[in-house]
Simulated assay, not measured.
Amino acid sequence: MLVIEAKLKGTQSQYSKLDEAIRTGQFIRNICLRHWEDNKGVTRNDLQKLCSVLAKNQETPWTKKLNSQARQAHADRAWSAIQRFYENCRLGKPGKKGYPKYQKFSRSVEYKNSGWKLSADRKKITFTDGFEVGTMKLWSSRNLIWYSEKQISRVRVIRRADGYYAQFLIAWDRLQEHEFQGKMTGIDLGLKEFYTDSDGNTVENPRYLRKSEGRLKRLQRRVSKKHIKGKKQSNRYQKARKALAKQHLKVSRQREEKARKDALALVKSNDLIVYEDLKIQNMVKNNRLAKSISDASWYKFTQWLQYFAKVHGVIVIAVPPHNTTVDCSCCGAKVKKTLSTRTHRCSKCGIILDRDHNAAKNILAKGFKLLSEYLNSTVGHTESGVKSSFIAGRN
């Protein structure tokens, strides 16, 4: 699946109608969730039928304005949340199971194959449902002219701090040629450096949130000063609130771009990548490190790493992080360290390494062990070209 995003340019009246469509989609999702709570044995098909009932109901006539397939798409959103909750309960996931919640501030509405129409040059989109949004311009660095409307499975309209965007979900199998040379690396994610690989190379941690904290605090003070409790907020308050939201959006985009570029560079230069499978949700419970961990954006990086690995046909393995910092990568002896100890000194073999470099070597060894066990268990079966190339490079 390929996602192409374009900014929507239109009038204030058109933006208001898009807001109405977003609120209607939120209402349908919440009604579907309430229907599931009030009735036993509700299925996905029951939620789909409920959408047509809402459109015909005299108490909710505004729901008919939203395209029928868009109504079903929001019923699917509710069912996805329900299904995820059931799956977590079935697997016995520790802690919270992710019980579905009602949405209060939804920012998107989703259309399937109808309710919208692209112009011949793919530079305009027309929304044809009951909200009568009309035609809006599309601003994007990617050209949609290469894809037919049949390939576009969904169109998602998203409201952000700096405007409205349309996301086109295109059925496309993206594959890139990769020259396999038998290179492999293990990476240790950290806060001092974004990551350190098993060869001792490091990538800088940019700390985008920390660098923007001064401006964010000033903008937050302006919002607080202009807020009047219990009354309708002024235009100056709304202006200050939007400025704060735009700054947060800028930080988010910087993290996303950094994670994407680093992941692509790593995949292009290696045939086997091993990283530690960190439980980030548990780690951010540490009040002293939560902000720094969130600012590092490890999760986005690993998500992009897995995506580009599929595109390039590269092997990516996630290994448990237990004892990767404590074990000596040379002799295997355990060397206890505090969080402030940045150098690994083994009293048994005498090796001296950077703490993260030592951990990266242990991570690579763990990943290579898991891969060897997998290959040994598949003896007698034809191995893929990726594995064969990796083994050839290793030898």
Rank of each mutant, 00 (worst) to 15 (best):
R241F: 04
R159P: 00
T378E: 12
N39H: 15
Q14M: 06
S340F: 10
N286M: 11
S224D: 14
K229S: 09
S294F: 10
R210F: 08
L364S: 04
K310E: 12
Y374I: 02
I315P: 00
L375C: 09
Q58P: 00
W304P: 00
V223R: 12
K150V: 02
E59G: 05
I273M: 01
L249V: 00
L216C: 06
Q247G: 04
T378C: 13
K123T: 15
Y147I: 07
H357R: 05
S52R: 15
K268C: 00
K101M: 02
R207Q: 15
A365N: 08
L272K: 05
L189Y: 04
T126A: 12
N67C: 15
W172F: 12
R84G: 04
I351T: 14
A171V: 14
K239I: 05
E37W: 15
C346E: 10
D129H: 08
K268D: 04
K246E: 11
S252W: 03
R288N: 14
Y86S: 06
R342N: 06
L191Q: 04
A265E: 12
E257W: 13
Y195W: 12
C32A: 13
R255S: 01
D162Y: 09
R160F: 00
K361Y: 03
L18F: 12
A240D: 02
Q233F: 05
Q26V: 01
K124W: 06
R253A: 03
S148T: 14
A296N: 10
Q14N: 07
I170N: 01
Y111Q: 03
T324K: 02
F27C: 02
F301V: 04
V223Q: 13
G92N: 10
C331Y: 05
L266A: 06
K242D: 10
W146A: 12
W304R: 10
S224W: 11
A73S: 13
V251Y: 03
I317L: 14
P320L: 07
L144V: 11
I28R: 02
G367S: 08
T382G: 07
N323L: 12
G230W: 05
K93Q: 04
D271P: 00
T341I: 11
V314N: 01
V311Y: 10
A240E: 06
R44S: 10
E37R: 15
T341C: 11
C349E: 02
S294T: 12
Y374E: 13
I145S: 12
L216M: 10
D271I: 08
S388A: 09
R122T: 13
F301A: 08
D38R: 15
Y208M: 00
K246Q: 14
M283E: 01
G10Q: 04
G130T: 14
L289T: 10
D46L: 01
T343E: 09
N323C: 03
T126P: 05
V284R: 06
A240C: 09
S141M: 04
S148M: 02
